[in-house]
Design a protein around this nucleic acid. Structure first.
Length: 284
DNA sequence: TACCAGGGCCTTT
DNA sequence: AAAGGCCATGGT
């Protein structure tokens, strides 16, 4: 990859195995917005940018070369060798189909705290509504920024709130879960920096000590927020994939990256919903 | 063990 | 247009 500046925009050239739109729209993140001019606008860790893709070129504005190198490239997972990874995935016929169906999905490296809150909100919920709740959450409690949408609210700010304060979010029963997460994280009862150093099983134990974080939410946080690439969050779609397409289990040799594979399988499953509801059709 | 708790989007009717 | 399904966790 190579970075050049042109007309006040920063171009990242030579980007392969990457589809920006799919990566931002596959359910792992909730704050990016597609603008009418083709740019995506997003903020993470207090850093804002606009970015769009033209084949193998990413075009950035409202950011800097330094931030692209140090923050956005790791954020988008562009420092990982997906060519080798996907070649590896393609040794499995099912996964090969899924990767070919929607190539270019990458696992983002998101902020752990934002990921924790986002997936608490995501439980028993659908994506448009999740986005709405998170947007109201950020406008209500996030610090305004020089450019772009407000920052994600800090655990400290959230822990000073009451359930009634969160009523405008219309997050239903999840409000008290958010408060418990904020209280545990801001008090140090749950230390996200430490969780990062733990193996998945121990990290999962810590995360599930938060009220409202069960195995599914914890696994989403481990994969999307802590980059634990072997963790496979089992929602209903992945359960169907397992039952119908992998009755003998996922391939062992792919287990260190099965979380990344999960993104392709999940996407594939959602777009072949009817097939997965009738196992006989798929097996044939 | 089975059910319920907010709510809203989605699919099916 | 209306009805029912869906969803992850904790509490009863």
């Amino acid at each position: 990859m190579r970075m050049v500046e042109k007309n006040g925009q920063i171009l990242l050239q030579g980007v392969s195995c990457f589809d920006l739109g799919r990566t931002l729209d596959c359910g792992q993140c909730f704050r990016w917005k597609r603008c009418p001019d083709g740019f995506w606008e997003g903020v993470c860790c207090g850093t804002f940018c606009r970015v769009r893709q033209e084949r193998t070129v990413l075009i950035f504005t409202h950011t800097s070369r330094g931030l692209i190198r140090d923050f956005w490239i790791p954020y988008f997972g562009l420092d990982e060798d997906y060519t080798t990874l996907c070649r590896n995935f393609c040794t499995d016929p099912v996964l090969c189909r899924a990767v070919r169906f929607a190539p270019g999905i990458r696992l983002l490296r998101q902020d752990p705290w934002e990921t924790l809150c986002s997936f608490i909100i995501s439980q028993n919920n659908n994506i448009p509504r999740i986005r709405g709740i998170i947007e109201r959450f950020c406008s209500l409690l996030g610090d305004p920024m020089e450019k772009g949408p407000p920052a994600f609210p800090t655990p400290e700010r959230l822990s000073s709130c009451t359930i009634e304060d969160l009523a405008p979010l219309r997050s239903g029963f999840r409000a008290r879960y958010l408060l418990d997460a904020a209280q545990k994280v801001s008090s140090g009862a749950v230390n996200l920096k430490t969780v990062d150093t733990l193996d998945s099983d121990n990290a999962r134990r810590v995360l599930t000590s938060i009220c409202g974080v069960g195995p599914k939410v914890a696994d989403c946080v481990l994969l999307y927020g802590f980059h634990k690439t072997e963790v496979v969050p089992m929602d209903v779609w992945m359960k169907r994939v397992l039952a119908v397409l992998y009755p003998d289990g996922f391939p062992q040799r792919l287990s260190p990256w099965m979380g990344i594979a999960q993104q392709f399988l999940f996407h594939y499953a959602r777009h072949h919903a009817a097939d997965l509801r009738q196992p006989s059709l798929v097996r044939a």
